[in-house]
Design a protein around this nucleic acid. Sequence first.
DNA 1: CAAATATAATGAACACTGTTTAGTAATGCC
DNA 2: GGCATTACTAAACAGTGTTCATTATATTTG
Lengths: 204, 204
Amino acid sequence: MGISDRKEREKQEMKRLIIDAAMRMFVEEGYEKTSIRNIAEKIEYSPGTLYLYYKDKDELLYEVQREAFGRLYEHFLEKAPSKSPWKRLEQIMHAYVNFGLAHPDLYDLMFIIRSPMKTAEEKGDWLNGEACFNYLVQCIQECIGRKLIRYTDGRTAALSLWSMGHGLVSLNVRCRLKVMHISEEDVYKGIETAISEYLKLIKN
Amino acid sequence: MGISDRKEREKQEMKRLIIDAAMRMFVEEGYEKTSIRNIAEKIEYSPGTLYLYYKDKDELLYEVQREAFGRLYEHFLEKAPSKSPWKRLEQIMHAYVNFGLAHPDLYDLMFIIRSPMKTAEEKGDWLNGEACFNYLVQCIQECIGRKLIRYTDGRTAALSLWSMGHGLVSLNVRCRLKVMHISEEDVYKGIETAISEYLKLIKN
DNA sequence: CAAATATAATGAACACTGTTTAGTAATGCC
DNA sequence: GGCATTACTAAACAGTGTTCATTATATTTG
């Protein structure tokens, strides 16, 4: 049945078309400000058509997130490849923060926005987010195993390291660092410094 | 002119009526899901009336934030009153995190939501948020002065401490800690542990 | 090949949203 | 009491996510 194969292929192509447009627009304009109608217009289809491929806007975001987490994971593989667990930990932390600072709107979609946790719960898994987190966890386990860091509990270490990174990036993304009255450049430097200092602190 | 005094007083009472209803509803239902119409209905006025007292929804949020930051500041004064800078730093950090965990929706309004930074810029200042931040900064300055912590730069210390606290709370508020697959109770314990461990690390 | 059927896409409709404004009711002033 | 000012409202506008009956297209069947 080559015909239903083609149908399936076309359906997938259509989903790609939609998701690509959605991602671009989410990143450029933000999730809230991007409407189904806008996306439909961009790909020259009627709004209703999107609902034949994705059940609601939430699912659209869910899919975009999967893509984004995939990219972060790639970013980790590229920027944090060291065999040495400690070096890799340093690389991971800097890679994480740099990713967040370089793609603030993507970061927003992935780690700050509220929406798609409903869909995520339904679908059971938490997309490629899990892979990203595990990349950190596994590195930490190695570090603890070889007593390279002062933390002894992996859970606490993972939570702390992630929180530090996320705290720095998200305060910046949501403009809360304004209270510090420093220029944008200095914010970047400050964040890098904070990460480095924190790593120094936890190093054994 | 007692009559214009009364007018002014009535105006302020009206603003209070609105802001109180708004705050309650923002906290109970979330900012996005609370509509001007809902607020108007609750206080038994027409939607348009709200615009005679606040120029838009943003300004409503701005005002609610001011209130919320006031409460956080009170919370600091109550829970972090120690004369000893180091003890006070510990108290501040735990107070901050506990505030966030106890009032997740308020925390959301204050530190995560995107909206009212426009209004904030217009109004110039950043509400009582500044006071809260300064309470931390001043404490850190004392700690550094007496060499009680390993950080030597106040900016970096403030940024790091705040980011750690905010990271922990906001990952929880926005449900990202789901990747860790732990119960809500253990999340609370984990966050407390992370804070304590971090304080241990920075202690001189 | 033509008719019947299954699929895909649409456009209008629904119930919302924030916001503006013309018109109305109530109040203060002379 | 009559005029002017203020306070309020109802309706309208342009937008949102989502659903659904209808139409156009493509496939299968007789």
